[in-house]
Every structure is written in structure tokens, then in C-alpha cells.
């Protein structure tokens, strides 16, 4: 069976946690969750993962700890966490919006709210997952800054790691900390990536192709983590 785009995205999300060690992985959304669990089953066995409510669970689904919301805020402030958030908008410096579209005083569309995005980005490693890469999401400037980007001052622990979309992987490792193409997914044209991005991407050398999952990873994704194939519903090709 051929490797699907969703499976490439899951492996790219697993790679977000490379080297993270014994910290809390907090993936929002299905593909980042599969990625975090895949990383724990392969290269990052010491990652901690919650059930999305108040328990820390082992890979076998057993409760290994208690993490109600109040303790999550302790972990945030302690910094031992890597969150992968979604974004209604994200801009070239990595500012993210999940609060509102339009004027904050009277938005054209009210979204979730700031949630924990300001605290996450001020305190620990943060990555983003964009299942539908488009100019509506990757914008020149966000309407409301929920997650803080590299052109603002969010204190000594601010660190935006990467952005994974259904088309490509980005980082911010340029001198002026702008979003930069790291790799395009197999069968994606670079022109398509820039056409679907609402800001100019920095000049790139030949970017690499996002790696395929290994045989072992494919086996885990298909038989252990997501046998029902829900991943294909989150990623549009």
C-alpha cells in the first residue's frame, strides 16, 4: 500500500519531538497526536502524554499520573512541555490567531479565544499543525496575536520550533526569524506551496523532500495508532 500524505504528515509531526526527552507532549488535533504517540513508540520513549483531560497515560493506556488543568499551568510555567497548536491564522514571523477574525472589539468571526496560546509561546517550545495550507491561514499578518511570533518580545523562553502543513514543513532559522521552507512533502510542487502562502517565503536553496515514514512507523500508524484511518479525513491532498 502506497504511503499517503496523511502518513507523511504524521511522521513529520513525530519528528517535531526529536530530542525532547522527558517532557509533556501536548498535541492538538489528530495528526499531531498520532505523531507524538509515534515518536514515543520509536525515538522518544520518555515523552509524557495525557488523555486530553486529567490523566497521563502510558502507551498501553494505563494511568501513570494525574494532570488536571491547574497542574498543566504549572508544567507550562516550568517549561517542560512542547505544544503543537492549530491556527486559524499564522503569519511570516509565527504569530498565531485562534481568538477572532477582524477587529477584536467586534469581530467578523468569533473563534475560541486566546486559550493558552500566549502562555504556551512565552514559556516553552511551540509548534503548529495546519491541515489545510492556504492563503486564508498563512497570512501576511494575523488579525489577533494569540500565539506570539518572533517579531515580538515574549521573554527568555520563547521558542517556535516548526510549522507542519499538509504541503510542507517550515522553521524560523533565518537571521530575521521568518518562516522558511525546510521540506516539501512528496509529490508537492514548490510553486504550489508559494501560491498557497499569503506572504513571500525567503529565498531557498533546493529544499529537501519530507521523508517517508519507515516500515516500522507505517506498521505502527496503520495497525496500532490509527487502524480506522481517521488521519485521511484530516489531511486533504
Amino acid at each position: 500500500m502506497a504511503v499517503t500524505r496523511a502518513e507523511v504528515c504524521v511522521a513529520a509531526c513525530a519528528d517535531l519531538f526529536a530530542g525532547d526527552g522527558e517532557i509533556l507532549a501536548s498535541p492538538m488535533g489528530l495528526v499531531p497526536s498520532l505523531g507524538a504517540r509515534l515518536a514515543r513508540l520509536t525515538s522518544e520513549p520518555d515523552l509524557l502524554l495525557s488523555d486530553g483531560e486529567a490523566y497521563l497515560l502510558t502507551p498501553q493506556g494505563e494511568i501513570e499520573g494525574w494532570l488536571p488543568y491547574r497542574k498543566v499551568f504549572d508544567v507550562v510555567a516550568h517549561g517542560t512541555r512542547h505544544v503543537v497548536m492549530g491556527a486559524n491564522q499564522i503569519d511570516k514571523f509565527g504569530n498565531q490567531n485562534i481568538s477572532a477574525i477582524g477587529d477584536h472589539r467586534k469581530p467578523s468571526r468569533q473563534l475560541l479565544g486566546f486559550r493558552g496560546a500566549p502562555g504556551n509561546t512565552a514559556n516553552h517550545k511551540t509548534s503548529y499543525w495546519i491541515p489545510r495550507h492556504s492563503k486564508r491561514v498563512l497570512v501576511d499578518a494575523v488579525d489577533v496575536v494569540s500565539g506570539v511570533g518572533y517579531d515580538k518580545h515574549a521573554g527568555p523562553f520563547h521558542h517556535i520550533h516548526r510549522v507542519v502543513t499538509n504541503l510542507a514543513v517550515f522553521d524560523f532559522d533565518t537571521p530575521d526569524r521568518r518562516m522558511r521552507l525546510v521540506s516539501v512533502h512528496p509529490d508537492v510542487d514548490i510553486q504550489e506551496v508559494s501560491d498557497q502562502t499569503g506572504f513571500e517565503l525567503p529565498e531557498y536553496e533546493e529544499p529537501s523532500i519530507t521523508r517517508d515514514p519507515t516500515e516500522q512507523e507505517l506498521e505502527l500508524i496503520r495497525t496500532v495508532l490509527d487502524p480506522g484511518g481517521k488521519r485521511d479525513r484530516e489531511v486533504r491532498v
Binding site: 509561546t121 512565552a122 496575536v145 515580538k152
Partner: peptide, 30 residues
């Protein structure tokens, strides 16, 4: 509209009868 952790911090400040508590959340954000 606040960050969730700021919200907790504000309740704790009120409960402790403090005028404020310091927190990193919020810096640089809207």
C-alpha cells in the same frame, strides 16, 4: 479576554488579597 493561565493567576491574586501576581503569559501577545 485573557490567557487561561492569566485567568487562574488573577483568581489566585484575589484569593490571596494581592493587587496582582507576576506571570509570563501575555507578554508580546494581543
Amino acid at each position: 479576554e485573557l490567557d487561561e493561565g492569566m485567568f487562574q493567576c488573577g483568581l489566585l491574586a484575589a484569593g490571596h488579597r494581592l493587587p496582582f501576581l507576576p506571570i509570563r503569559a501575555g507578554l508580546g501577545s494581543d
